[in-house]
Simulated assay, not measured.
Amino acid sequence: MTLRTLILRYAAFAVAATLANLAVQRAILQVGETAVWFAAAVGAGTIVGLAIKYMLDRRWIFHDVGTGARNHARKFSLYTVMGGVTTAIFWGTETAFWLIWQTDPMRELGAVLGLSVGYAVKYNLDRRFVFTDRRLEGPA
């Protein structure tokens, strides 16, 4: 895979996961806007985005050919741990934007910025620690 293809795919998958994340957040925030609803929205959105991104990355970015429930459970667990590291970047940025401006558009801008930085870090962590069965050919 060329560097250009890798970047375009990864960016498209990040956008897809981000849009799903934000859609879930918006749906939950329609119910209420207290701190509890905000936390529920951020958490649920993150879970949905994580699941979508894992499925797309596994197949189309890292070309994972591993089989078996144990293998996939191990990889998804590692993927989730790596996501936990980078989710702090996302949550911190989104929450800071919400606390500063207290508007949905600014909260979402903070989410997009935080996710963008987080995804760049996450790609490198996943490549190094999660999808190790078959290394990518091409750019490191």
Rank of each mutant, 00 (worst) to 15 (best):
Q102I: 00
Y54W: 13
L78F: 07
P105T: 07
I89G: 07
F90V: 10
V130C: 06
G43K: 01
A44R: 00
I89C: 13
V42L: 08
F62M: 07
M82P: 01
F129H: 05
F62W: 12
F97H: 05
I52E: 02
W60S: 06
E108Q: 12
D133P: 00
L99F: 09
L125S: 03
G45I: 05
G118L: 04
T80E: 01
N71Y: 15
A44S: 14
F97P: 02
T132M: 02
R58T: 12
M82C: 15
G49L: 03
D133V: 00
I89D: 07
L56A: 06
T95M: 05
T103D: 10
F90H: 15
T103M: 09
D57H: 03
L109E: 02
G114C: 11
T46Q: 03
V48A: 14
W101R: 08
L56M: 09
T67S: 14
W101M: 07
G43F: 11
N71S: 15
I89T: 13
A96P: 05
L113F: 13
T132H: 01
K122Q: 11
E94C: 04
V121D: 06
Y119A: 15
P105N: 08
T93W: 03
L99T: 06
R107M: 10
G114A: 11
V65W: 07
W91E: 08
R59E: 10
R70Y: 09
R59H: 11
G114P: 06
G118N: 02
W60V: 02
L56H: 09
A120H: 04
E108I: 14
T67W: 07
V81F: 09
Q102V: 00
L50E: 05
F76N: 03
L99C: 09
T67N: 11
R107T: 03
W91T: 10
A69P: 02
L125V: 02
T46A: 10
V121T: 09
